[in-house]
Write a protein that binds this DNA or RNA. Structure first.
Length: 233
DNA sequence: GCGACAG
DNA sequence: ATCTTGTCGC
């Protein structure tokens, strides 16, 4: 399937101050008191992006898996101009236009969206997963590969072990060991999903590798799509 | 003030 | 994120 083309909204922020103001306004819409869909059922979408800084391009992929079998149900991709520089804490403004377009190109909306990065674990409690959840209305969570600026105790070595991810004395996420003896991933809630459920989803989606199948699939798809785009221009 | 900092 | 081959180990 060819990538759809995306453009940011006319009022997309230009400065860091504007972007932080958008986060402060939208964060009030995050829903934290829902458990979210049950792990192992329904459709789960993984989203990720790949960049070409030279050509100022970002390619997003959405891969929908059957949560029970982890088989691919549907895939989509989208291309956009890079709409914001990378600034820690403002990652969403770089990725969201392309990701929204990829999600919008799906025939069936998923029951849950799994993002690369953070949700509630964020300086202003409004990382990529929370932002995407609010804009789509879909339950969402974030799985990051690094602890960012947060602190945590190393979880026990066994798969399934968890430890709190702490920011200013508050548990903003969890370090989750998805494979025996392998570095944990860092899970936080996005929108309409509890932290416990977010961790359960992450484990259910990671039977064989450190990262969830959703993000592995989305990562490889957006890289392939970027290569395609570059080859055909 | 300086350094660190999701992707 | 991205630049990048072989290589150590199960």
């Amino acid at each position: 399937m060819d990538p759809v083309t995306a453009a940011p909204p006319a009022d997309w922020p230009t400065t860091e101050a504007q972007a932080r103001a958008v986060q402060d306004a939208l964060r009030t819409r995050v829903i934290l008191d829902e458990d979210g869909p049950p792990p192992g059922q329904g459709l789960v979408a993984g989203v990720d992006v790949a960049y070409d800084d030279e050509r100022d391009l970002v390619v997003a992929a959405a891969v929908v898996l059957d949560a029970g079998t982890l088989e691919v149900a549907e895939e989509s991709t989208a291309v956009a101009r890079i709409s914001f520089p990378y600034v820690p804490g403002l990652l969403a403004f770089r990725e969201i236009p392309a990701v929204l377009a990829a999600l919008g190109a799906l025939r069936t909306p998923p029951d849950l969206v799994v993002c690369d990065g953070y949700g509630r674990a964020h300086p202003r409690r409004f990382g990529l997963a929370a932002h995407l959840g609010v804009l789509t209305g879909l339950p969402s969570l974030g799985v990051a590969k690094n602890p960012f600026t947060f602190s945590y105790e190393d979880p026990a070595a066994a798969r399934g072990s968890v430890a709190a991810l702490v920011d200013g004395g508050e548990e903003v996420g969890r370090a989750v060991r998805t494979q025996d003896g392998v570095k944990p991933v860092f899970v936080s809630t996005g929108h309409r999903v509890s932290l416990a459920n977010a961790c359960a989803h992450t484990l259910a989606l990671s039977p064989h590798y450190r990262l969830p199948e959703t993000t592995r699939r989305a990562d490889s798809l957006c890289r392939r799509a970027l290569t395609q785009v570059l080859a055909s221009s």
